[in-house]
Simulated scan of single mutants.
Amino acid sequence: MAVRKVAITLPEELFEIVERARAVEHRTRSEMIQEALRTHFGEAVYVPTDEERRQLVAALDEQTQGTTRDWGQVRAQLHAEQ
């Protein structure tokens, strides 16, 4: 697949949301923004369960407080609970 580099400008609050989420999920900015665009334009993407969303929000909250959990451990815990 061919790729193109694009520069975008984000309001500070959107930039912080992307940064917090990518830190927790161990993903790149490009991956986060690509997923947001796919979601916006209706391309099928992974949709987390309510429990996954709850744990992601908790992890994001911990990130703001200066603590983090390893996303691999969070995923393993979620899969174990299923």
Rank of each mutant, 00 (worst) to 15 (best):
M1T: 10
M1V: 08
A2R: 14
V3A: 14
K5Q: 12
K5N: 06
K5A: 06
I8H: 06
I8D: 03
T9R: 15
E12M: 10
E13C: 13
E13R: 13
L14N: 14
L14C: 04
E16K: 12
E16M: 09
I17K: 15
E19M: 06
R20E: 12
R20T: 09
A21D: 10
R22M: 10
A23F: 03
V24N: 03
V24R: 06
V24L: 02
E25P: 01
E25W: 04
H26M: 11
H26Q: 13
H26P: 02
S30R: 05
E31Y: 03
M32E: 14
M32A: 11
I33N: 05
Q34S: 10
Q34R: 15
Q34M: 06
A36I: 00
A36Y: 01
L37W: 04
T39M: 09
F41L: 11
F41V: 12
F41H: 09
F41W: 06
G42H: 02
G42W: 01
G42E: 03
A44Q: 12
A44C: 04
Y46G: 10
V47Q: 15
P48L: 03
P48E: 03
T49C: 02
T49E: 09
D50F: 07
E51C: 03
E52Q: 11
R53A: 08
R53E: 14
R53L: 11
R54I: 02
Q55H: 10
Q55W: 11
L56T: 03
V57C: 00
V57Q: 15
V57G: 05
V57E: 13
A59V: 02
A59I: 00
L60Q: 13
D61E: 12
D61K: 15
E62C: 07
Q63A: 08
Q63W: 09
Q63D: 13
Q63K: 14
Q65N: 14
T67M: 10
R69Y: 02
D70I: 03
W71E: 01
W71F: 00
G72F: 00
R75A: 07
Q77V: 01
Q77Y: 04
L78G: 02
L78Q: 09
L78K: 05
H79P: 00
H79Q: 13
A80G: 10
E81I: 02
Q82S: 09
